[in-house]
Amino acid sequence: MISARNVGVRLDSRSILDDVSLDVLRGEVLTLVGPNGAGKSTLLAVLSGDRKPDSGTVTVDGRDIGGIRHAELARLRAVLTQENSVSFPFRVSEVVAMGRSPWARSIESRDDVAVVNQALEATDVAHLGERRYTTLSGGEKARVSLARVLAQHTPVVFLDEPTAALDLRHQEEVMRAAKIMAGEGRAVVVVLHDLSLAGAYSDRLALVAHGRLEAIGTPSEVLTAERVERVYGLPVDLHDVGGHPVVVPRR
């Protein structure tokens, strides 16, 4: 679906990403993990077409992503960013409906109401529909923004730390929603910090460190105690819970 080849990004002669190649595939959850400042968000920005790489190529089904118009790209991929403030007091239902705007004047727009309602349900914010977005709590804002991204209903979905502001139950629900989208044949790319959460819900993990792709593969292939210790600089124990790796720092 989306392919990055030898991608490099530099900022003031400092290398942020260096020679990264990976494929985003339909029907799977691909999670990007790595320490702070490793380049995960930059990689997400490059894959989603937000940022033009300084070297290498990013293609969507063989087409250069830089050559795709804004309006068309908005029908191909949705992005949940970490920054989700809204300048004016729009209602929650209005904010989520904004996710439908790329489909205005297309055949898909007849499903607008159903898709919006589904997104409100999936993120557990249907009861907030009439509230002003600006009056919500941080976690509620995060879920409403996720609902907006779901409503965009694109073949590729990027989620940059979607669980950051959420409680335990909502974290699980978000990742389950990601899994469901992948089950529908869509490609889901998530940036996560919680390695155990990543291990439980990802089909593939990409570990990014110092701007390079350290490892990519299934969670149990990537998450070895030795590798996690080396990349994060912290001794950890790895446990196996129901076939998924769980990472616990040695305290």
Binding site: A71, T81, E83, R148
Partner: peptide, 15 residues
């Protein structure tokens, strides 16, 4: 309206 979501989000929605 979409710009109220911030510039980046507006761009993601095709603006």
């Amino acid at each position: 309206d979409l710009l109220a979501l911030g510039e980046r989000n507006a761009r993601h929605l095709g603006v």
